[in-house]
Design a binder for these strands. Sequence first.
DNA 1: CTAAAGGTATACCGATTTGTCTACATAAAG
DNA 2: CTTTATGTAGACAAATCGGTATACCTTTAG
Lengths: 191, 191
Amino acid sequence: MDKRQQLIQTAFDLFYRNGIHAVGINQILQTSGIAKKTLYHHFASKQALIEAVLEYRDEKFYNWLASRVDAVKPGYDGLNELFDALDDWINNRVKLLTDFHGCFFINTCAEFSDPQHPLHQISQRHKQRVNTLIESQLRALGIIAPAVYSMTESISLLKEGAIVMAHVQGNLSAAQKGKDMAWLILAAYFS
Amino acid sequence: MDKRQQLIQTAFDLFYRNGIHAVGINQILQTSGIAKKTLYHHFASKQALIEAVLEYRDEKFYNWLASRVDAVKPGYDGLNELFDALDDWINNRVKLLTDFHGCFFINTCAEFSDPQHPLHQISQRHKQRVNTLIESQLRALGIIAPAVYSMTESISLLKEGAIVMAHVQGNLSAAQKGKDMAWLILAAYFS
DNA sequence: CTAAAGGTATACCGATTTGTCTACATAAAG
DNA sequence: CTTTATGTAGACAAATCGGTATACCTTTAG
């Protein structure tokens, strides 16, 4: 019954499905059944609410992904699991994450395109967190600097590509394709 | 002095930089210095204007990319040129395309997330056009069905990943990384 | 007992949204 | 010469935007 949390969750659902600019304060209030005064008691502005929503999604998504990856052996298994997790997300097999509508952070950067914009930067930090997850898997394979940075970028590129292909082009097997390509990258490194 | 074209170009510039929902009709009118009556003479609604803007960008971007790719030998050279062209775009070396703010069609799908939405579908068709460009390069290498379809998806995934990494994470060398990875994919196929 | 925190409901503010309208000007074509 | 297409300038409408304000209720803690 935490009203603040209810507002964040309702706002996320609406923002994720319809975009941030397209959803007004009043729609969030009507959907959640919470009074306007209460919203402005917890948040100074719509902007502050959006920032809280991004942090909420960052926590939820990262924790989910990290728990999936950390449940298996670091290294090959971890990277496999990363793409399997993406595949489950894309194909709506993860009820925790809401129906797939692309990556909320990529979508946010599309709406707030300026890299200096606070919402863009929060999204960027989320991506950096996920990159550290990838990097730790590569380090477990004995890959060290500077190769580990280059490889992390490669895997991250495959991950982003898979998410966007799934969303924009409706290619639901994009994560499996990303996984196959990740294997080729690794094989090439160790050959 | 074609007012219709002026409106489309002004609208594109504003939509691309700030997002579609964030830009109002009045802002487009003020920036272009065109009267409201004129806009509604040429377009039935804002939605119709947006569709015209997407088609304008589709033409402009596809023609630019195809002319770059078709200027070199089909096959390896064409694929190389594809990623070199992306690299030029990302690093603002193509004045024709306006300052890089990610892919306008990916951004549009982020704002209009429902795959059934007309604007989402127009964006999807643009991606399909670009895919045919990739496919023809692969066919020039002697790759035939069904492998050519799978390979086209792979290259497309790398392309999307590069664009998003460049925009969201600010990684300006993402297209070069995509090119390197494309080479590995091709090498693996022919080995 | 009282005071503060958190809540509902709703009226209101000024600005902005898409879109329509009137009135008028110009230029080209039959 | 007159019609049609295309244009400007701007008032106007109805709705919605983010945000503030008033009035009142309930729970909890000192």
